Simulated scan of single mutants.
Amino acid sequence: MARIMKGLFTRRARSKSRDPWWDNVRYTSGTLVVVGHTIEPLRDMEGPLWLWLVTWALRLPVFVMVCGYFSSAGPLNLREARRIIESIALPYVFFTALQTLQVRWLEGEWKIYLGLPKWTLWFLLSLIVWRVALPYVVALRFPFTLTVLASLSIGYFNEFGSEFSASRTVALFPFFVLGWKIRQGLFADLFSRGWTRWLSLGLLLGSGVVAWLVREEVRIGWTTLAAPYVSQVETFGLAWAWVFRAALLTWGVVLGLCLINLVPRRRIPVVTYLGAGGMYIYLLHPLVLRPLRETGIFERIDSREEQVLAVLAAVALAAMLASPPVRAVMKPLVQPSVPWLFSREVRDASVRRKPKPVEAEGPTEAEGATGPADPAEDGPRAATPTAGGQEQQPAGAGNR
Rank of each mutant, 00 (worst) to 15 (best):
A166E: 07
F144D: 01
M1V: 11
P363M: 01
A318T: 06
N24S: 08
R267G: 00
Q232N: 07
K16E: 12
T386F: 14
R11F: 12
M65K: 01
V263G: 02
Q184W: 00
A166F: 10
A150T: 05
R293K: 08
L321D: 02
L178E: 00
E361V: 07
K16W: 03
L58K: 01
T364Y: 00
P372V: 03
R26W: 06
V311N: 08
W251V: 04
V311I: 15
G74N: 04
L114K: 03
W195P: 03
R219Q: 13
G108L: 06
G296M: 10
V230E: 13
I85T: 14
F142L: 11
L8R: 04
S350F: 13
P325A: 10
V308L: 15
I4R: 10
Y273G: 15
W251A: 05
W110M: 12
P385W: 12
F176I: 06
I39D: 00
R18E: 15
R304Y: 09
F142R: 13
F160T: 02
W22A: 01
P91Y: 04
V254F: 05
E377A: 11
T96H: 05
I182M: 15
R381E: 07
G362Y: 07
W21H: 15
K331C: 07
P20Q: 06
G221Y: 09
F342I: 08
I268R: 02
R266E: 14
T147V: 09
H37Q: 12
P291E: 15
L199Q: 05
V311T: 08
L257Q: 01
L76E: 02
G237H: 09
R11Y: 11
V263F: 05
W122R: 02
V138I: 15
E217M: 09
E305N: 07
V54T: 15
W50H: 13
R353N: 10
L255G: 02
C258W: 00
L262H: 08
V214S: 08
R304I: 07
L225E: 09
W198F: 13
V346D: 03
L225N: 09
Y273H: 13
V214E: 15
A97N: 03
A376P: 01
L255C: 09
A313R: 05
A276C: 10
L78Y: 04
S126Y: 00
V270P: 03
L287Q: 09
I84F: 03
R219P: 01
T196A: 12
S153D: 04
V66Q: 01
L249P: 01
L124C: 08
R12Y: 07
L76Q: 10
T120N: 09
V132I: 15
K181Q: 15
S207T: 07
